[in-house]
């Protein structure tokens, strides 16, 4: 379904992704863990064409999207949904408009029909009576759920989650994880999530990759995570300052 092959990306000479490869099967949720600033979100943005790699391939259903022109991307993006780290709700629109915007723009559905679909999607993420509220009137957790409803509004084949639980309290974070698992089980959506929240990775992931120094340095399943012999993953899940991942602490 999704293949990243030898992806490289630099910003102003600073390498962020270096020979990064990944394979995602249809219907599975792959989680990419790694420290902040290791390029997890950059990798995610390559999947949906928000960034272009310096070299390498991004294959979606066997098609190399790196060669896509703008029109082909517009077409390809209709199969994607994305949950952004800070929800990225359109703050000048009410909640229902946020959720239904894709439908209003890309279908001939009338506004009241879109409103009803938005209501159903909001119910799916556990929200009622928020349709007319503005994003500024919502809590962080509610914003994330509205963003999730927006991501699934057009029944996408692929959803990308950028730090789905970042900035949320543990209970709200777990509620978001629960919703992601439900979406996967009910709708069989293929998903790629990036996070540094290990509890979230365990709960939502079928497979867990670790990104370090621009490369994937290990792969585990939630079941094998605790017994991993990969030193990078072990250091990361234990949250240790000392190990193969250089934290700079030794030089202080």
């Amino acid at each position: 379904m999704i293949d990243l092959i030898g992806l490289r990306k630099s910003f102003d000479g600073q390498k962020v992704l270096e020979d990064c490869s990944l394979h995602v099967e249809r219907g599975e949720t792959v989680v990419i863990i790694g420290r902040s600033g290791t390029g997890k979100s950059v990798l995610l943005k390559h999947l949906v064409g928000l960034m272009q790699p310096d070299s390498g391939q991004v294959l979606i259903n066997g098609e190399n999207t790196v060669e896509f022109n703008q029109d082909e991307w517009q077409q390809a993006r209709t199969q994607f949904g994305m949950l952004f780290q800070n929800a990225a709700l359109f703050d000048s629109m009410p909640v229902w408009d946020n959720v239904g915007l894709g439908l209003l723009e890309h279908t001939r559905l009338k506004r009241h029909e879109v409103y009803e679909i938005a209501q159903r999607k909001l119910e799916l993420v556990g929200l009622t009576d928020v349709e007319e509220k503005m994003p500024a009137q919502l809590s962080g957790g509610m914003k994330k759920r509205v963003a999730l409803a927006r991501a699934i509004a057009r029944d996408p084949e692929i959803i990308l989650y950028d730090e789905p639980t970042a900035g949320l309290d543990p209970i709200t974070g777990d509620m978001i994880n629960e919703l992601i698992v439900r979406l996967r089980d009910r709708l069989r959506i293929t998903a790629v999530a990036v996070t540094h929240d290990i509890a979230s990775a365990r709960k939502i992931g079928d497979r867990i990759y670790m990104l370090h120094d621009g490369k994937m340095v290990g792969e585990e399943t939630p079941a094998s995570l605790d017994q991993t012999d990969n030193p990078y993953i072990r250091q990361f899940i234990r949250g240790e300052a000392h190990g193969p991942i250089d934290t700079g602490l030794a030089t202080v």
């Binding site: 064409g49 928000l50 703008q70 990225a88 709700l89 894709g102 723009e105 890309h106």
Partner: peptide
């Protein structure tokens, strides 16, 4: 502010130019 809060990216991922 739409750009720095990723709202413009959100539009693009929704295939809205």
């Amino acid at each position: 502010s739409m750009k720095v809060t990723e709202q413009v990216d959100a539009l693009e991922t929704m295939a809205i130019n």
